[in-house]
Amino acid sequence: MRTLVFAEHDNQHLKGETAKVVGAAQALNAPVDVLVAGYNLEAVVAEAKKLSYVERVLVADAAEYSAQLAENLALLVHSLSGEYSHVLAPATTTGKNFLPRVAALCDVPQLSDVIAIESSDTFVRPIYAGNAIATVQSSAIKHILTVRASAFDAIEHNGNADVVVIDSVFISENSSFISAELTESERPELTAASVVVSGGRGMQNGENFALLEGVADKLNGAIGASRAAVDAGFVPNDMQVGQTGKIIAPDLYIAVGISGAIQHLAGMKESKIIVAINKDEEAPIFQVADYGLVGDLFEILPELEKSL
C-alpha cells in the first residue's frame, strides 16, 4: 500500500511543513504520493515535484479548492483514499480542520499530532498538553494521522516526482468563504523560522515588542509571544507560542520576559537551544533554558541588538 501526504501551501508556495511530513512518512517504508489541492497551483506543484522520496504529485487545481474548505477537501481526499493505507496531513489549522472529516468518511479513527512513527501501525502522540506521551497501536484498516511537523526532519528537495492531475471537483454547498485577514509580515513564519524571539507579560505593552523586532531582524527570526502577552492584548493571537497556540522547534528560541508556564513550555521545549531573559531569577523558564540571563530586558534587548 501507499502513503498519501496532504501538502500545506497558500496557493503560491509550498509550506515547510510538507517536507517534514514527507520526512515522517519515510518511516512507513511505502511509496509516498503528495496531494496538492488549491487553485492556480503551478508554482506549488513545481516545488512539490522536487520533494525527494515522493513518487507522484496529485494535483487538484480548481477555484472550489482555493479557500481549502474542510467539506470539499474531505470529499476529495476520501475519494482518493482507496489505494492508501496511510493518509498524513500536517497538524496545522488546515490539516486539523479537514482530516477528521476524512477519517469519519472512511469510518476509521484519527491519530492527532503524531510526534513519532514506531511502525506502520504504532504511533506516538502527546496527550494532556504534552504532560504525558501516549504510544498508540491501531488495528484500523487505514491509518489517518495529523503530524506535528516540528518533530520530524524535512526531506530533501532533489526529487522529480510525476504529476497526476485529479479532474474530479467536489463542491461544498453548505459553506462558503467570505474573507481572510492574514497578518502581513516580512519575517519568516513562526512555524518555519530557525530563530524565534518571543515576548511575555514582562514586555509590559505592545509597543515594546519593537525591541524584540530589532533583535529578530539581526537574526532573521520570527516574533512570538506567550499566552499571557496575548491575553493582555499586547499582540494578536496568531503570534502565540504554546499548547493553545503554535508548537515550534526552532534552532534558537529566545524567551524574553516570559515566566515559563507549562502551557508555554509545551509550545517550545523541543527547540534546540533556549535562551531566557528575565529579571526574576526564580522564573521557571530558567529550568529549561540552556542559557539564562537575569536582568532588565529593557537594558538587555538594545544591547543585544547592537552586539549582534
Binding site: 502527546p126 506521551i133 498508540v136 497501536q137 491501531s138 544591547e303
Partner: peptide
C-alpha cells in the same frame, strides 16, 4: 481500533547555565 500500549512522562529538559552579560 486504537489501543494505548504505553503512557510515559515527557522527557525533561535540563536547566543549562546562567550567563552574566550580553
Amino acid at each position: 481500533s486504537l489501543t494505548v500500549i504505553k503512557v510515559s512522562p515527557p522527557t525533561q529538559r535540563k536547566a543549562g547555565i546562567k550567563v552574566d552579560n550580553v
